Amino acid sequence: DESNKPILLPNESQSFERSVQLLDQIPSYDTHKIAVLYVGEGQSNSELAILSNEHGSYRYTEFLTGLGRLIELKDCQPDKVYLGGLDVCGEDGQFTYCWHDDIMQAVFHIATLMPTKDVDKHRCDKKRHLGNDFVSIVYNDSGEDFKLGTIKGQFNFVHVIVTPLDYECNLVSLQCRKDMEGLVDTSVAKIVSDRNLPFVARQMALHANMASQVHHSRSNPTDIYPSKWIARLRHIKRLRQRICEEAAYSNPSLPLVHPPSHSKAPAQTPAEPTPGYEVGQRKRLISSVEDFTE
């Protein structure tokens, strides 16, 4: 099969070098950035008060330690540790928490760990991170309901609301924008112990962030949302095809390698009803078989 044979790379090609550099910018793992907010007593309706908090309760602090690993920003190499735009020179604080497994990295933009500057009256330095995160974990210690939209931002799609209760338990629920209701189930609340709260809140936030990324990708319907490693695979396959075309153009005697095509017509299947918005969006999480067989 010609399409699977190794090909020689061009010795000097600026377009090839640019493509390789672009490939280096696509990590081999999925990345997520999640905002974390603490809401104190009497702050449920005040964005400024929430963003001005420099610490929270003892249970909130224990919750943070379970979310991930504490890292010092100045020691991080952005090409190895995903920071979601946090500055490593102290502009966004000294520490944050991050978490990773074999296929993804997540960083938490924690408002109480970011510096509260006197010259920044409206807390814009914090909002440029927190307001651009799709998902926020809100530790609501106010005793009042927290409403979506209290923290203004164009991309605040989903809130994971943590409400501490007695007996070391917590109520965990989801809020989302109306255009996200087909992807996020907000109907079920959970009672979770303090011990298990970081794991549950983190998983709910990661799932909500993946759904938000799919939702946000609708602005470019021709580019369905893939995982990062599938995006790398697609980029490599496009690069291979372009090299083959350039080689055939410079030397017409060489065969032009095309991806294999299936001449056999697909079997006719009964027509199915058109899937609704929710089903269609969830299918976009699934990769096409052509990603692996071309």
Rank of each mutant, 00 (worst) to 15 (best):
D24C: 03
G40M: 02
F157N: 09
D125F: 13
R69L: 06
Y38W: 00
I224P: 13
A208F: 03
N220F: 05
K147Q: 11
S44H: 10
Y29V: 08
I34C: 01
G85F: 03
R234M: 07
P252N: 10
I230A: 13
P198G: 06
Q281K: 07
L256G: 15
L37K: 01
P266E: 12
E272D: 11
E246S: 07
K126T: 04
P270I: 10
L48T: 14
S173E: 14
L206P: 00
T269Q: 13
L256W: 11
N4C: 15
C76G: 14
I34F: 04
A201F: 00
D120G: 14
D1Y: 12
V138K: 00
D1K: 09
P275T: 09
L70N: 07
V119H: 09
Y58C: 06
L70G: 06
N220D: 08
H109T: 03
S227A: 07
S57M: 01
V88P: 15
V107D: 07
N132D: 12
Q77I: 09
K147N: 12
S263R: 09
L37A: 02
P266L: 09
P164R: 00
P221F: 04
V138F: 01
R128I: 09
K190N: 14
L197Y: 00
R128G: 08
L70D: 10
V20Y: 07
D30R: 04
G93I: 09
G182D: 12
K152T: 13
S219Y: 10
K283W: 05
K228G: 14
G85W: 02
R123V: 14
G66H: 03
K283S: 08
Q213G: 04
Y277H: 14
S57V: 00
K33C: 14
P275E: 14
C76S: 08
K127Y: 08
S253D: 15
G143E: 03
I110W: 01
S52C: 06
E246A: 05
Q203C: 07
R234W: 04
R242C: 15
L83R: 13
G149D: 13
K237P: 07
L130G: 04
Q268R: 12
L183E: 06
T163L: 02
S15T: 08
A35R: 04
E246L: 08
R282G: 11
K190Y: 05
L23Q: 08
Q94A: 09
V192T: 02
P260T: 14
Q14C: 11
P273R: 10
V289Y: 11
S193T: 06
P27C: 06
T116P: 05
G40P: 02
D87M: 02
P221Q: 05
E245K: 07
D133T: 09
I50N: 02
I191R: 02
S263A: 12
V172S: 00
L130Q: 04
C89E: 13
N4H: 12
S250R: 06
L51N: 03
L23H: 07
Q94M: 15
A271I: 11
I224K: 10
N251L: 13
K74Q: 09
Q105M: 12
S187M: 04
D166R: 01
R232L: 05
G276V: 07
R284L: 08
P78E: 12
G68Q: 05
L23I: 08
L9P: 10
Q175E: 06
F157Q: 13
T150E: 03
R238I: 06
A35C: 04
S13A: 09
H235L: 12
H216Q: 08
L83Q: 15
F157T: 07
H109A: 03
P255C: 08
V81E: 14
Q213E: 06
D185Y: 03
K126Q: 05
S187L: 03
A265E: 12
F16V: 14
P10S: 12
K117H: 12
